[in-house]
């Protein structure tokens, strides 16, 4: 079980958090202009990487804030945590 450093609350147990899927998928500003394929790309397509993955987390049983995490899925090492809207600190 991870120890996650919430950018607002600090170190907490993983049980206080909920994972929210892949990060940096922006909702299209004009969905109606998109073809079925383009909309499906946004709606359904998600990466499932063995290695460095960018993901969203929510401090559900804490401050309820969303934030981003960079995690190596092969060994669960958390490489970085940063706020929503910020650029990832690593590529």
């Amino acid at each position: 079980m991870f120890i996650i450093t919430c950018p607002f609350c600090g170190e907490r147990e993983q049980s206080e958090f909920k994972a929210g899927g892949e990060a940096h998928i922006v909702r299209p500003k004009q969905p109606t202009e998109l073809s079925d394929d383009e909309w499906a790309e946004y709606l359904f397509m998600r990466k499932n990487i063995k290695g460095i993955q960018f993901e969203r987390w929510n401090h559900t049983h804490g401050c309820r804030k969303w934030f981003n995490m960079v995690r190596d899925t092969s060994n669960d090492e958390i490489k970085a945590i940063y706020k929503m809207g910020e650029k990832p600190p690593i590529e």
Partner: peptide, 11 residues
């Protein structure tokens, strides 16, 4: 509640 919060905070 959490869905609405999600949209407010992230989108």
């Amino acid at each position: 509640m959490s869905k609405l919060e999600d949209y407010l905070q992230t989108e």
